[in-house]
Amino acid sequence: MAHANAELINALRRTAEKLAKGAAYQWGHMGSCNCGNLAQELTKLTKAEIHQFAMQGRGDWREQVEEFCPTSGLPMDLLIADLLNYGLTTSDLQNLERLSDKRVLDRIPVEKRYELRHNVRADVVLYMNEWARLLEDELLPQVKIDLSFMKTEETSVFAHQV
């Protein structure tokens, strides 16, 4: 599972929101499918650029991720390496393309969980939002907030009241 971090969580939410609002979506197009839309958000590449990179390799996202070689120099491998730098794993990319990560699916109500279709915009939006919530739930316990400054303010407020 992805390394939970704010940048990835926000990218998942922004991608889901854009898809919900009508961003280009076509599951059979490497630049505007599930992974392609998230890749657009994280890398700022266009759907056309992502698709062009993918056409230099073979297969869909799952197959290209399976054949991923970080030292090949191929544009698609460089793109995948960039996505991994955001905390994603190769399994995350394969699961996103098919909406198949068990931990994400377990959080979706049972009546909807078994009806998800990997190539339906609304299902992709639901999956991405739930994945973002899962990552956020993992990240929040790690966040430490220093509130020591409040103790000095409280002390000074009480000192002025006396």
Rank of each mutant, 00 (worst) to 15 (best):
D137G: 14
H3R: 15
K18F: 02
L19G: 09
E67H: 08
D146N: 14
H29L: 02
D82G: 13
L139E: 13
P141F: 06
H29R: 03
L88T: 03
R107M: 15
Q40L: 07
T15D: 00
M1H: 08
A4G: 13
R62Q: 08
V104H: 04
R98T: 15
H3C: 09
G87T: 02
Q142F: 07
S91K: 14
M128A: 05
R14G: 00
A24N: 10
V124W: 07
R98V: 15
W27E: 11
E17Y: 04
M76L: 05
A2C: 06
E138L: 12
E130C: 14
H3T: 14
L147M: 08
R121I: 05
E66I: 04
L126D: 06
H3P: 06
T15F: 06
A23V: 00
V143S: 01
W61M: 08
A39V: 04
A39D: 04
R98M: 15
H3L: 14
D101C: 11
D146F: 02
L88G: 01
K102I: 12
L134V: 09
E154D: 08
E49C: 13
E7P: 04
P75D: 11
L135N: 03
H160Q: 13
Q64E: 03
G87I: 00
E111I: 07
A16N: 11
F149E: 05
L147W: 08
A20W: 00
K21W: 00
S32N: 10
E97H: 15
E17I: 00
I108W: 05
P141N: 03
P109T: 03
D82Q: 13
Q40P: 09
L74C: 03
D60P: 03
A2I: 05
W27C: 12
W131S: 04
L116K: 06
Q161Y: 07
V157I: 11
Y86V: 02
V65C: 03
R107V: 09
V65N: 01
Q64G: 08
P70I: 01
N129P: 09
S72N: 04
L139F: 08
L45Q: 06
E49V: 12
V162D: 00
A132L: 07
L83V: 04
T43M: 08
P109W: 04
G31W: 09
S32K: 01
L105A: 15
F158N: 12
S32Q: 02
S32C: 07
R113A: 14
Y114N: 14
K151Q: 12
L135R: 02
Q40R: 15
A81W: 01
M1W: 03
P141V: 00
L140T: 14
G28F: 10
L135I: 01
L93N: 08
L96D: 10
F68K: 01
